[in-house]
Design a protein around this nucleic acid. Structure first.
Length: 521
RNA sequence: GGCCCGGUGGUCUAGCGGUUAGGACGCCUCCCUUUCAAGGAGGAAAUCGCGGGUUCGAGUCCCGUCCGGGCUACCA
């Protein structure tokens, strides 16, 4: 039987990295075994539904490179059996669930219950007072007679359908990650299958859909593990075989607590806004909770799919370590071809959310200066439009010292800004040296004079070495460093000769002249 | 409270009865070098949560215990 898996989010918020990791595992697993990945929207809770959420889900998936062959946003394949619709609200409307719960009722595996909210609350209070487990273990309705039920219905009481969990048994679940887990069925309460508004609950809809959609493996968060006995009971009652369950460990924040807003970026799309490439994020989150064989870490989506194996999934929870993401992101930046990289940078720079993301951060304290970053990004993207090869050369020179798309903003800024913005510390460090004025003037005279063509890295190097000799300097450093500050405004960056070669003779001359004016008199 | 899951350096992890407990991020040192990175070579950092067993031998198996987490909804 071929593999069929599903990512089944409920549209209650923008998916965070933990959710997306689940989606990623589904994709990797399907891809590894040539199976199908399904996107199914679990929108059975009308009260919690958030408008526009489905778009966020789809965008998040596309961003990290998760593919799905069935469900909203999937391209229809002619001739293939369609298991849709793929939104549970639509499935409910289509009457897909009803025959199954009716059957459960008829066969005595489920029952109507008409407890009011207050009655339920009171029951729970009593259970708590008596230190019993809370939940619906029978109440007044599990063993109600048909006439009692009829009467309640006649009175128009709102009712729910509950699954009748068999008592006095051991319910066994086989988890692919943790192995065999046993539950005392007396401790498993009767879950609601159909709510009073007629909508199915997760417990019912998800399992019915998994069966109908011929799902073979259920990848889901660990938080579902304790309701798994309800699910296997349901499958059994319906005479269906349960898919293999794969419960995934949770991802925590730095402090070991569940990932939340106070950890900063947690939504998948936050990382797109921050400038991480989708594949880098995917690589990183895949490795929280899963280890491919060997010592491999930096992997493309294809490489991960090839290596993906449930046996490599960790049962223990993991921590989201931004430092390591940064490193991994840098590795992916280096693996990207310069041409693709430039395209990604421009796309990133041009996206509206980028500006919103960075301009909303306070300047200072942290490393990146949002103002310079945005300025660089904007200018670089503009430059790429009318002189792509220039922008490409700039990107190439910065490629190995930048860790994500956003970093090209400040890194490439000096290449594309009309006037260099000097870092005061760089100026303090080098422009005060006594030989600098003479150095700049010497270079300027050579550049403005009838020099032979300066069209290679080597020629720039030769020029600077000549300057070193002309000024009788022992080392090349005193030549290189001030010139670097003059041309870039900074003390760090690509090799000076390389960068001069990209800037070109005229621009170098212009900047040297401008720098001369910055020198203390 | 009850039930369930988890526990190897700060972090991600390898390990599947016998290893000097391996790798990666981060940190430190050195090399390379015009700076910063990248790259290379080293280093500090884990009595494998703790305590008992089983065994010639335990991170690996068993029990207990502690700590962390999840569930305990007509939410998913």
């Amino acid at each position: 039987m071929s593999v069929r898996v599903r990512y089944a989010p409920s549209p209650t918020g923008s998916p965070h990295v933990g959710n997306i990791r689940t989606a990623l595992y589904n994709h990797l697993f399907a891809k590894r075994f040539g199976g199908v990945n399904i996107l199914r929207i679990e929108d059975t809770d009308r009260a919690r539904a958030i408008e526009g959420c489905e778009e966020d889900i789809i965008e998040s998936l596309r961003y990290v490179g998760v593919l799905w062959q069935e469900g909203p946003g999937a391209a229809a394949v002619p001739g293939r059996h369609d298991f849709g619709p793929y939104r549970q609200s639509e499935r409910k409307e289509a009457g897909i669930y009803e025959p199954h719960w009716r059957r459960l009722l008829e066969e005595g595996n489920a029952y109507w219950a008409f407890d009011t909210e207050d009655e339920l609350k009171e029951m729970r209070a009593i259970q708590e007072a008596n230190k019993q487990s809370t939940g619906y273990f029978g109440g007044t309705w599990r063993e109600a007679t048909p006439s009692q039920i009829e009467q309640a219905q006649r009175e128009g009481k709102p009712g729910v359908v509950r699954l009748k969990i068999p008592r006095g048994k051991t319910i066994v679940i086989e988890d692919a990650v943790r192995g065999r887990i046993e539950y005392d069925s007396n401790l498993v309460d009767d879950p609601v299958l159909i709510k009073a508004d007629g909508m199915p609950t997760y417990h019912f809809a998800a399992m019915v859909d998994d069966h109908l959609m011929e799902v073979t493996h259920i990848f889901r968060g660990e938080e579902w593990i304790s309701s798994a006995p309800k699910h296997v009971t349901l499958f059994k009652a319906l005479g269906w075989t349960s898919p293999i369950m794969v419960h995934l460990p949770v991802i925590n924040g730095r402090d070991g607590k569940k990932l939340s807003k106070r950890h900063g970026d947690t939504a998948c799309l936050d990382f797109r806004r921050a400038g991480f490439q989708g594949e880098a994020l995917a690589n990183f989150i895949a490795l929280i909770g899963w280890a491919p064989g060997g010592d491999r870490e930096v992997m493309s989506m294809d490489e991960m799919a090839e290596a993906f194996d449930i046996r490599g999934i960790q049962p223990s929870s993991g921590v989201f370590d931004l430092e390591k993401l940064n490193w991994m992101s840098g590795m992916h930046i280096r693996r990207t071809t310069p041409d693709d990289l430039l395209s990604s940078i421009c796309e990133y720079a041009d996206r509206g959310e980028t500006e919103a993301y960075w301009s909303g951060r306070p300047p200072g304290e942290g490393e990146p200066n949002p103002r310079l970053r945005l300025k660089g990004l904007r200018l670089l993207s503009a430059r790429a439009k009318d002189d792509r090869s220039y922008a490409l050369e700039a990107v190439k020179l910065e490629q190995e010292r930048v860790t994500n798309l956003a970093g090209f903003g400040e890194a490439c800024l000096f290449f594309v800004q009309p006037e260099v913005e000097f870092d005061p510390k760089a100026v303090d460090k080098w422009f005060g040296e006594p030989h600098v004025r003479a150095l700049f003037e010497w270079l300027l005279s050579r550049l403005e004079g009838p020099v032979s063509s300066l069209d290679s890295v080597e020629k720039y190097e030769a020029l600077l070495r000549e300057a070193q000799g002309a000024l009788s300097l022992e080392k090349l450093g005193p030549v290189v460093h001030p010139v670097r500050v003059a041309l870039t405004g900074k003390t760090t960056g690509p090799g000076l000769f390389e960068l001069m070669n990209v800037l070109g003779k005229d621009e170098v001359a212009k900047r040297l002249a401008a720098a001369l004016k910055e020198l203390p008199s």
